[in-house]
Structure formats: C-alpha cells, structure tokens
Nucleic acid binder design. Structure first.
Lengths: 225, 225
DNA sequence: TGGTGACACCTACAGCGTAGGTAAAGCAAG
DNA sequence: CTTGCTTTACCTACGCTGTAGGTGTCACCA
C-alpha cells in the first residue's frame, strides 16, 4: 500500500467530504481534485474507491437518500407520500446546496430505489393502474423536489449564493413585487407546502375513485357481454 | 473587424446554437469551445457578444422564456397559472434537454421576470398576502418545473439519455414495479398533470379564503377595540 | 520466501473558461 | 482620400478539469 498518513481512504469518507464540500461551496465546486486536496490525498487515489466523478455525484444522492431514511415497509400510499414529503423538506433544509443533485443524477443505489418500489406497491394496492402510478410518481416527486429546490437552492430570481446583483437587477420601480420577495425571510411554518401537498393528494384520490368506477363499469360490461 | 466568412456573429445566433446543441447533446455539452466550433468561429470571439458561459446559460433561459410567451397583462391568478403551466409543459416537450437550465440558472432577463411580476400582482389583487404569494410562487413553479423536468429531462431512475444500464440496474426480481415503469411509454393525455394542477390551485384557493376570513376577524377586532 | 492483490502515487493528455494582446474591417469626420 | 476611432475576430497562454496508463510499496497468504 502507498505511504499512508491519514485514516485510510474509503468510499464513505470520500462521499462525506463531497456532501460537506457541496453544502459549503456548491455542487459545482465538487471536483475530484478539490476532494483529493480536502482529504490530503492524490487525485487519482479516489479512483481506487469510485469509478468516476459521476459516481461521486451518485454517491451524494445515495448518502442523502440514506439520511432521508424513507419508509420501505408496506403502508398507505398517501401516508407514505406525506411522510416522504416532510423528510425531503427537512433534508433540503439541512443540505440546501447539495440537495440540487436530485436534479442532476438519477437514483442509482438499490437502497435508494427500494422506498420508491414500496410507494409503487402501495399505489397498486390502492387500485391505481401502472400508467397512473407512473404519472403520480412524477407529479409527487416533481412537486416535492421542485418546491424544496426552489426554496432552498433557489433558482427563480436568485443564484444559489444570493448576491448583490440579484437585487440590483430587480429594480424596485420595474419589478416592485419581485424586488420585495427577494428580501422576504423564509416562513417559519410550512403552511403552503403542507396545504398544497394535501391538495395534490386529494386530487390523486379523485383520480383513483374515477378510475375504480370506470374499471368497475368495464368489468360489468365484460360480465354481461 | 476580423476576417469574416459567415453571417456575422450575434448574441442571438450564439444563443440559438446553444439551445440547439443543448437539445441535441445535453446541457453539459454546451461549452464555449463547442459552440465556437459549431459557428465556425474562434472560441474567444463569442466573448464579444456574451460576458461569460453563465451568461450563455442565462441566455438559454431567456430564449426559452421568450418562446413560452407567458402572459403579462392583468388576469385572474388561477387562469394565469393554468395557462402558464401548459405553456411550460409544451416547452419542456419541445426542448427536453435544454429545459433543465431552469434548475441551473435564475431568471435574468427583464422580459422573463415581467410575467412573474404580473402573476404576483394578480395574487395580490385576489387578496393573498406577500408572504403567501411568495410561497405560492414557489409551490407553483416547483410543481410545474419539477414535473416537466422529471418527465422529459428525467432524473429519477434514468439519465437524461436513457441507457442500457438503467434497465439492468432495475432488476425485474428486486424492483419489478420500477423496472416496469422504465419501459412505459409517455401518456398521450396529461390527466394527472392537469388534475394535480387543478387540485393545487384548489388548495391555494382554500388558503386564500381562510386568510381573508382571519383578516376580516382581525379587522373587526381592531374596530371594536 | 516468494507471490499476489490492493492501493497510493505520478505523469500525461485532451478539454475547459477566459485574461490579455493584436490586427483587420467598418465607419465618421476632416 | 486620408485619418483616426470603434468594433470584433483572432491568437496565445494560464490554471483548472476528468481520467487513462504505469510504477512502487505495503499487507497478506501459500
């Protein structure tokens, strides 16, 4: 083994350093060489533990998902959704910058995919078709990740690191309301997030009951034919 | 002026090439040097028309927003939201890969911000407080952009360019439902997108009426005190 | 003891964004 | 027509990036 000084390099140590660096300086600061410098190690040494830089980003996703600790045991689909939504919101608050990996890389680790499989199973048990389940998955994660990213990683008006140019660009004369929003503190209570989520699930329940109705009609038609 | 051969280089031509390249090979393929090669021009020549690579990405956002052509004239807040949601969904379908810039860069161009200002004005007219409007903006754009990205740019199971590894990773034994989803074609009708959006707006209307009620109570308390 | 595998290191290469400098083309005034 | 200024295309060069390929050294096992 090469001349060693520090605790031995491991995948885990690399990924933890990556998450820390991402939260400190943003995801674009996460480079193989920066990480190596942080870990007091040669850049190429990382490749003994990870396949590529993309694999490092996938590892960040994996770590965040592990921290989110989503439920995998059977439960009601809407309970799973509410639970998961809050876990993601908390995760985004803890990792405002690293959280953006979810828009960059897919879920790769089996432990990350397992809870999704559980959600799909719950949807099927409730009576959703496969096609509907697919769309509901997209709608649910789209809302949760989209909301959390916009609130914490921010990308509608302001950069990830809100700068002075953000304000100067939003001149109070031309864009009074946008300008005002940029100065607003974050709400302490998640009333809109919760209410919108609640409404979203309500809409999905409506789809379900409509689906069940038409399925039943189709079945009876089959039976009488 | 330098030795010219082609039509003159302009910001517009650069940005159009950037959008085309992004849609063809993904946003990560958009580099100053690649663009210059496409335009048969020296890399540094681009800097006579744009400030930086970030400015190019901002320009992509600008072009897409111009193409979306969101309403800026006064209208009901929920009508604006429905209209905008569909424009964004269509935009994402036309530019599946370039669409991801919305998660990378904020709105910079005044013409991009103007419709948002109009939406905020509509929310205020309807009776939403500034704080509520801010959260509703996040919820709305979070849902619309999140959904569209997940559907078209895809990043939950599969890469932007769905590859064979996506399927092999989702083994049919361990993840039967996720595996099945990866093979599913896109639905021809947007029933879940529409229904969820409808539900979302319904939830916001509920918040509004609750707000109006409490505001009225507070006002009468003030009056009687 | 000799072999084998793991792992840290090193060199090198192609590509990136862009600072700084040069030169040619277009245009305005004299 | 000449003079000079502005614009803009080009070129060189620097420090950064990801990573292919090769080398040396350690731990362990036969």
């Amino acid at each position: 083994m090469g001349r060693r000084s520090n605790p031995p390099l491991t995948r885990q140590r690399i990924l933890e350093a990556a998450v820390a660096l991402a939260d400190r300086e943003g995801l674009e600061a996460v480079s193989v060489r920066r990480l190596a410098r942080q870990l007091c190690v040669d850049p190429m040494s990382l490749y003994n533990h990870v396949d590529s830089k993309e694999a490092i980003l996938d590892g960040i996703v994996e770590l965040l998902m592990r921290e989110a600790d989503l439920p995998v045991e059977p439960m009601e689909w809407d309970a799973w959704a509410r639970f998961t939504a809050h876990r993601f919101a908390e995760l985004a608050a803890r990792h405002p910058r690293a959280f953006a990996v979810f828009s960059l890389r897919p879920l790769m680790a089996p432990e990350s995919i397992r809870p999704v499989e559980a959600f799909l199973a719950a949807l099927a048990r409730a009576g959703f078709t496969t096609e509907r389940s697919s769309e509901i998955l997209v709608a649910f994660f789209g809302y949760v990740v989209g909301f959390s990213m916009l609130r914490h990683a921010r990308s509608l008006f302001t950069e990830a690191e809100p700068s002075a140019t953000d304000m100067s660009r939003l001149s109070p004369e031309e864009f009074p309301r946008c300008h005002q929003l940029a100065t607003l503190p974050q709400p302490e209570e998640e009333v809109v997030f919760d209410a919108s989520l609640q409404a979203l699930l309500e809409g999905m329940r409506a789809i379900l009951s409509a689906d069940v109705r038409t399925t039943r009609v189709a079945r009876t038609r089959e039976a009488t034919a």
